[in-house]
Design a protein around this nucleic acid. Structure first.
Length: 256
DNA sequence: ATGGCCACCGAGGGTGGA
């Protein structure tokens, strides 16, 4: 089973890229973040015409997550993790016996800010939900844009004084991993580990990036991972002729 | 070169992203 996580930075702007991705890479499950649209603007017809199912938790302007899949989802949870009910950052469902949870974790803006405190609170709620989910599901995959760098190797410019890199944020991630999840990342000799590059200052070209898009799996699945890939080609303006503007994130795929 | 912010809302510039 091929499982992908991708922060698309607007599903409607990125629709041609997403459809090309489905066609080129044939994921069984594609988890998206930052849809940035209401339910009525979500391009469900286009996705269904491509032969896929979709479940979504939509919100106007901000956030929004969905799971696009070849097989039909069961036991769907729409926005199970939230502090404010209208803020859509989580969605979960079961696909062929595997529980898949998709998060768009709060950014946090700046260390010590109200948004930073909110991020840590959100992560606490997420941990409680995951603990419950892990008690009920042996085979579980947690994916998403975590907005947290796991270690100093995962940022070109790592500083624990910076947002995404602080000790508290990384501790929150470690607490989640300690519940019984493994980071499915695998190093590649010819490639840095990054999944996100700022649009500004030619960051992608200079490979000034961060690894913040993660796929975490239970022990039962971890040893069976056949491959881990970051699809950087989608970050090239030439990749999708219909829509040369790219997301600032690259899709991350594992094959089970 | 694989580049030099982008997307939202709304009608222009403010806000959020990471």
């Amino acid at each position: 089973m091929k499982i992908t996580t991708w922060n698309v930075n607007s599903i409607n702007v990125r629709l041609p890229n997403v459809l090309k991705y489905l066609s080129d890479y044939q994921p069984d499950v594609l988890c998206l973040q930052e849809l940035k649209c209401n339910d009525d603007k979500y391009p469900l017809d286009s996705i269904q015409n491509a032969g896929y199912h979709s479940i979504q938790a939509c919100q106007k302007t901000y956030n929004g997550v969905s799971i696009i899949s070849k097989s039909k989802p069961t036991d769907v949870d729409i926005n199970p993790v939230h502090i404010i009910s209208g803020e859509m950052r989580s969605i979960a469902a079961t696909f062929q016996g595997i529980r898949i949870i998709n998060f768009y974790v709060v950014n946090g803006q700046a260390i010590g800010s109200d948004k930073y405190k909110y991020k840590l609170e959100w992560l606490k709620k997420a941990k409680a939900y995951l603990k419950n989910q892990l008690s009920k599901n042996k085979d579980l995959v947690l994916v998403g844009d975590f907005n947290i760098v796991p270690s100093e190797l995962d940022a070109h410019n790592f500083s624990s004084e910076d947002i995404l890199c602080s000790d508290e944020e990384r501790k929150s991630l470690k607490d989640i991993l300690r519940l019984g999840l493994n980071d499915s990342f695998r190093t590649k000799a010819d490639e840095t580990p990054y999944t996100w590059w700022d649009y500004r200052a030619g960051a992608f070209h200079r490979d000034i990036g961060y690894r913040i898009d993660l796929i975490l799996t239970t022990n039962s699945l971890y040893n069976g991972i056949k491959s881990y890939e970051v699809h950087r080609d989608t970050r090239h303006k030439s990749w999708c002729s219909e829509q040369p503007k790219t997301s600032d994130h690259a899709p991350v795929m594992i094959t089970l």
